[in-house]
Each structure stands twice: as structure tokens, then as C-alpha cells.
Write a protein that binds this DNA or RNA. Structure first.
Lengths: 230, 230
DNA sequence: AAACGAACCGGACCGAGGTCCGTTTAAAGT
DNA sequence: ACTTTAAACGGACCTCGGTCCGGTTCGTTT
């Protein structure tokens, strides 16, 4: 199942060789859990600092907004050296994405094994519709973080979370629109849920979320050729 | 005509009040041309430095790629102070976009008054198709620059060039798919021509441009409900 | 021609992301 | 307990985008 690949960690294993084990659930599970991958098995101090850093970062977001999350500030707030932040999260984007990891993993779980129509059980077109609505709803909550966490253009489409979403949408499309290029069409559909676009439409243009929801529903109907639900 | 608005200059007039005159063609015309707008009427030294800077920037792109275009390097190469670069172009993104202005203006002219199917005269769905193919072709040429010129997420959808494209696509959609939310659908269609996506698919995934072209054609057909041209 | 003011110039300066490398330390082996 | 080693640490350091402000220049007005 190619889902597994996309489920992988936010941060690519930076140092050392790593036996392939894509699924990483480190901070929802007791440390030392994973019997195969050793990447999540951080040294005691490293794990402690990682937790500290995430907590500090979250606090900074709450207090000063995402723009206030400076690598130096996070390091200071966690009483840790700056280098440690970069070693753990790679770069600012990595840190911000790690901050959203919980929410993302929960979402992915809902897609894979939650109740329909988001999870399996509903017809593909309807699951697609539910997917978009869920994404819009998520954006409503952590839009600022999603914006701030946007990686450089060259990396944007290789972010694990996005690859997962793409694989999910492509899978549904393959069933709902068998004659289309589901891979590329998945890209297109996902693009219309881009946080930057949502921000532009809602915050900058003052459009209500409902309009975006209607547009998504309509888009799904058009591309899959199914009739829109009234 | 709401085209006019989107045709406006790459850089918003930073200092002083400006009588509304949207169309700006400054560097294709002798300076001092515009009888209404005074923004393009730069002082002699300013105009000279602007030209120097653009030339220097273009040379740097040619020699070291877009990544080599450092504001300081450009300033040095143009034998000009760093502050001057920022005064003229606002920021790095502004400079890079100015570098693409010629090509963009030509493209816009082709859309507005060029020969069909890109220009007026062809049925809307076909013009849409031509638009996407033209965008893909353009991306093939100056992809690197387009990537480097990508603005921050909050500004991405307010860039004049993009607003123009959006208005154009929305106009065509209003005819080709009257029952859709043409504004939002325009956003969606445009997103699938995003330089970052094109880069990802062609450079990183090695997909041939033809596949993207087919996907675009198919997408237009699906969303407008018209039959795809065989 | 002289004076005037707005626009422009330039480079010192700042903040933030990211790198580097000498030092420390956790944990595995003896 | 002692050695060893790979990993983690931390903060000095670098680069680059962006700001600021005192000095200069262009174009105009009298």
C-alpha cells in the first residue's frame, strides 16, 4: 500500500543510515516504542529537548503568533542552544510542521479508518467531498500555522503530509473518475485547498467559508462527473 | 473593464499619491511617455539606475542562476547602493518579477488582442485550453525565475500578473461554465498551472510536458462540461 | 542664476535563518 | 567501575534580506 510511504515522518532522518520503516508516531507513543525504526529512538537528552522545544514553540505561537516563532527565541525559551533546534527539526519549516503533527496524524487516521464519509465505507465521490470539507475546516483552525509552515517552492510538493493527501485523493479519483489522469487531477483538487488560497479568499477578500465549501462540492461533482448532492 | 485593474504595474507606487492609470508599459516605451500617471516618470538618475539594475540582475541570472541574484550582488554589479535596489523594486520578489515583466506584458497582450485561439475570436473553452498550454510553454522557458520570484504566501494571490490571469480565466469560465462559481473555479484552474507544481512534476518527477498538457485539456473539458478535442 | 524642495542615493546597521566545530554526555561494551 | 564512541550540545559565526538616515542631486520656481 503506498499510503505507508506518505505516512512517514515529518523530518527525514538526517544523520546516519536508517532501516526503512516509514510509519512514525513518536510523540503519540511512549518513546522507544518502535521495534524496527531507530530514528525515533532519540537519546534521552535529545528526546527531552525535543519535547521542550515543541512546548516552547507552541507557547510562542500562542503568545506572539506564528511570526513570533524565531528559532533563536524558541531555543532561548526552551533553554537550549540554537544548533539543537536545527539539528532536531532541520529548519524553521520543519519545526512548524512538527507543531502540526498531532492534528495531521489524527486527520490521517480519520481518513484511513475513521467513520464514513471521511473514512472508508462511503462512495468515493462522497468521500472526496468530505475530504475537502474537512480540510477547509482544519484550515479554519490553524491557518496561521499552515501559512507560516509553507516550505520553499521546490519542497512544497514533497512534504509527507501533502504526499499523503495526494495519494488519498488520487486513490478516490481512480474510482470516481477512472478515465482521468488521477495523479494530476489530485494535484489540481488539492491546490484548491491550499492554505494560502484559503487565507486569501477568507481573510483578504472576506468570503465566507460556505462559498469555498460549495465551490469544492461543485468542483468534485464536475471532475468526477457525478451529480452534485443538493 | 476589470482587466485594466489587473494590468497595473508590477510594483505598487510606493511614494506619493498617484492618479489612477492602471496600464503601465514603462520599460517598453520611451521614458516620460505616460501623460496621466506620473509614477513611471522617474527622475533621470532613477531611471538610469533602474535600467542598470535590471540589466545587472539579468546578467547575474544568466551567469549564476536565480539563486545567485543577491540584492547586494545586483547592487554591486550595477554600481549602485543597496538601498537603491530596494527603493526601486521593494524587495527581492519585486526585482525578480520586474525581470519577467516584458514576457508577461507580451503574454497579456496576446490574450487581449492576439490571434485566436489565445486571443479573442475562438470559443471560450478553446481559449481556456490555449491559455493553459501557453502558460505551460512559458513555464518551460523561465521556470527558475518564476520559482525564485514567488512571493510570500499572503501576497501570492494579489500579485498583479496573477490577478490578471485570474480575471481572464474567470471571464472565459463565465461563458463556458455559466452555472459554476467562475471566480473560485478560476483559482482552481490557475493553481494547476502553478510554477512550483510544474517544477515538481517535470523536474523532480520527470514527467513529460505533454502529460501536463493532456491533463490541462482534460481538466478544461471536465470543468466546462464540453467534450475534449480528440 | 540662484535658491529651494522633493526625490534619490548609499552604505552602515539590524535581525533572523542556517552552518560549523570544539566540547560534553548518554549509553553500549569490557 | 572504566573506556569508548557516536550522538547531542551550544554558541560563535556567516550570509542575506530589509531598514534607516544623513548627505546629494535633479528639476523647478522665482
Amino acid at each position: 500500500m503506498l499510503y505507508a510511504d506518505a505516512m512517514s515522518a515529518t523530518l527525514p532522518p538526517p544523520p546516519g543510515p536508517r532501516p526503512q520503516l516509514p510509519v512514525e508516531l513518536l510523540d503519540t507513543l511512549p518513546s522507544g516504542f518502535d521495534p524496527v525504526a531507530d530514528e525515533p529512538c532519540l537519546r534521552a537528552d535529545a528526546a527531552r529537548n525535543r519535547a521542550r522545544l515543541l512546548e516552547a514553540a507552541a507557547r510562542l505561537v500562542a503568545e506572539h503568533g506564528a511570526a513570533g516563532v524565531t528559532m533563536e527565541a524558541v531555543a532561548a525559551a526552551a533553554q537550549v542552544g540554537k544548533g539543537t533546534v536545527f539539528r532536531r527539526f532541520g529548519d524553521r519549516t520543519g519545526l512548524l510542521m512538527a507543531l502540526m503533527d498531532h492534528s495531521e496524524k489524527k486527520f490521517q487516521a480519520a481518513l484511513l479508518s475513521g467513520p464514513p464519509p471521511l473514512g472508508p465505507g462511503a462512495p468515493p465521490a462522497e468521500r472526496l467531498r468530505a475530504f475537502g470539507l474537512a480540510m477547509l475546516s482544519r484550515a479554519g483552525e490553524e491557518l496561521e500555522l499552515q501559512l507560516a509552515a509553507e516550505p520553499a517552492p521546490e519542497r512544497r510538493y514533497t512534504v509527507p503530509a501533502r504526499r499523503f493527501h495526494r495519494a488519498h485523493v488520487a486513490l478516490l479519483l481512480r474510482q470516481a473518475a477512472p478515465d482521468a489522469d488521477s495523479e494530476l487531477l489530485a494535484h489540481t483538487l488539492l491546490s484548491s485547498l491550499d492554505p494560502a488560497l484559503i487565507h486569501h479568499l477568507t481573510v483578504q477578500c472576506g468570503q465566507p467559508l460556505e462559498r469555498l465549501e460549495r465551490a469544492w462540492t461543485d468542483l468534485v461533482a464536475r471532475t468526477t462527473g457525478t451529480a452534485p448532492p443538493e
